[in-house]
Amino acid sequence: MESKFAELDSVIHSRVRLAIIILLLQSETADFTFLKKEIGVSDGNLSTHLRKLEETKYIKVQKRFEHRKPKTTISLTDKGREALNEYTKNLEEYLRLVSEGKKL
């Protein structure tokens, strides 16, 4: 029997972007350096993924100077939270169908 499930959000469905969103979900705000260290990616790579998430308004990026040094803080928006909810719901549905042995 063939079953269909909703497609996963392609913006979130990437290792780095998913990791960013999960880390932000547990924090009120996070620094660029914190995300870089936790995910283990280069500055350029992280910036690219952050830009993509910012374009879709899933995250809010704030840049400021602290002790004369630039500081980037990132937080999850309500839209990002909703998108993640939808994403995990669909992922759960996929896993349920797989466990029931249905063809996807």
Binding site: H13, S14, A19, I22, Q26, H49
Partner: peptide, 21 residues
């Protein structure tokens, strides 16, 4: 490419939650 399978996505979620926990 950075695209992942659904199973890998689950692993990423678990790993990031564990990391902060």
């Amino acid at each position: 490419m950075d695209q992942i399978t659904n199973e890998q996505a689950l692993e990423v979620i678990k790993e990031m939650i564990e990391r902060t926990k």
